[in-house]
Each structure stands twice: as C-alpha cells, then as structure tokens.
Design a protein around this nucleic acid. Structure first.
Lengths: 141, 141
DNA sequence: ACTAAATTTGCAATAATGTTGCAACTTTTA
DNA sequence: TAAAAGTTGCAACATTATTGCAAATTTAGT
C-alpha cells in the first residue's frame, strides 16, 4: 500500500479499533499529507473504494478516539487533521495554531506554536481556544 | 417593526443596497441579537416570511458588502456576525476575538480584544488571523 | 408622482451533503 | 477455527445549498 502500513496498524490497535482497509487507507492519507483533509478530499482520493457512509463513520470514529481533531472553517466544511506530535498519545491535540496557506490551500498544524492567552472582558471565563493564521506556508514561499 | 428600523435603512443605503423587507428584517435580527447567527437561526426567526433562497442570498450579499463577517466553526455551519463597533465603517471586521459561550451557545464578538501576534516557524508568512475562545460568557456566569 | 430601468424575490428544479437501520461481511478473541 | 464483536455497504431518507427565470419590488430620472 505505502510506507506507512505498519504505522497505521499501530495507531488503530493502540486505539482499540479493528484494523480494516478503509481505516488504514484513510489514516495513510493523513500521514502522507501532513495537512488537514475534508471529507470531500478523502472521497476524491479514495474514489469508489469505500462507501460514503464508511468515510463519514471512519472520520467520526477517529475524532472520538482522538486520532484526528477538527479545525474550524468559515466555508461550511469540516476539516480533520492528524497532528504528528500528539497522535502517539492520542490526546492534547488542541493547543496549537493552525496555518492555512493561501497558495496551496493546505491547512497545517503548527504543533510548536502555542495559542497565546488573551485577557477577556470582565465576567468572561475562558475554557478552550482555537487560533488560525493564514498566509503563505514554507513550501509556497 | 422594531426600534432599529432607521438604522437598518441607513446601513443598507450606505452599502448601496435596495431597502427591502427581507434585508431589513435580517439586519434587525443581527442588531437585536448582539451575537452571531447561523442561516438556520435566521430561518427559525423569520419563519415563512421569506424564501430560504432569499435568506441565503441576503447573507451572501451582506458578507460581500462587509456588513457581516464569517466566524469559523467546527460543526459544519457558517456563523455570521455583525460587529457593533465596525459595522458603521463597513470594513475591518476581522481583528478581534470571538467568544462562544458553552452555556447559552451564543457567539459574541469581543470587539475590544485584539488577536495577539504569534511567532511562526521559519518560512511562514502570516496574513490574517482568527481566534475563538469558548467558555462562559458574562450573562451566564 | 409616474414610468422605465435596475434590482430583488419566489418558485421549481436540481445538486450536494449528511444520517439511519439493517443485513451481510470481516476482524478479533479465545 | 468457531463464536462474538465490530465494521461495512446498501437503500432510503433528511437536510442544506445552488441555479435559472419570470414576476414583483425598489430606485432613479423626469
């Protein structure tokens, strides 16, 4: 399949999920891509390989297990990203900045860039933050 | 209609848009609400008053004119918000933090909270940032 | 105030996207 | 290797979004 075949199995097993072709393929797409993927992207790559429903359910399962996390968008799509550093542990995906490249349109997890704290107005209590920066990524500069 | 009736007309005229019942009503919803609205919210409030298509097109027009701006979400919906401070000028809607209340689920523009700059890895050039914080808002605390 | 031009709306059709139940199949467990 | 557990695909359905076009409304000019 590709060079990630053992890695995908490991991640699935670690999360107590059955190792199936669909999950391996979708996981390998994330590993190969290093940016975020939307449901539509995955359908494009997998073609007629799996049913649409399977893709939906696979992504949902991955989110529940913390294998991928969601990235907010303004265009009515859901973006899913697997973060290199964190996916080993399966948690704490949610403290880094996401970068969206205006040129290649990839969404990249900047695992090393922590979201800064902001001072909120009186009466507001923070719980969790998301931050997205767009611009030009290191590949497109 | 409500106390904002002149304000809605002013905003529409300032943006060279025909003053119609649909636009006035939708704009007045934003003015009355002070939080963000999704397409579905607007349909709920307006009921059978206007066609769904009109709501879609009105929101699209408002975004193009800069009357409202988009807020990213992870739940496959588009949120639209009119920011109190900026809507007079019709631009620069995009430099403040958005707060999503976990209790009342409202999304609120914190017009006074500026998005902090972050240091990006080598090779990345920033252009624009978005930041969302959720937690408990001042009404729900 | 009245009319022509420009703009906006609603309808109908269509497309795209997401969800559910269930039977068949595959993977895991022991 | 067989039973149990988990996963998949199909079909049907639900929701959400888009397009073209004719009718209606709003605006601008007189």
């Amino acid at each position: 399949m590709d060079q990630h075949f053992t890695m995908t199995d490991d991640i699935l097993k670690k999360n107590k999920l059955s190792v199936t072709d669909g999950r391996k393929k979708i996981l390998s797409l994330f590993l190969a891509r290093d940016g975020a993927l939307a449901h539509a992207d995955i359908e494009k790559f997998t073609g007629e390989m799996f049913d649409r429903v399977t893709v939906y359910r696979t992504l949902q399962t991955f989110v529940e297990k913390g294998i991928v996390h969601l990235i907010p968008t303004t265009d009515n799509s859901i973006l899913y990203a697997l973060c290199k550093e964190n996916c080993e542990e399966g948690h704490h995906h949610d403290n880094h900045v996401h970068f969206i490249c205006d040129v290649c349109t990839k969404t990249i997890c900047l695992d090393d860039v922590t979201i800064p704290k902001v001072k909120l107005p009186k009466g507001f209590t923070p719980n969790h933050s998301e931050m997205m920066v767009n611009g030009v990524c290191s590949d497109c500069k």
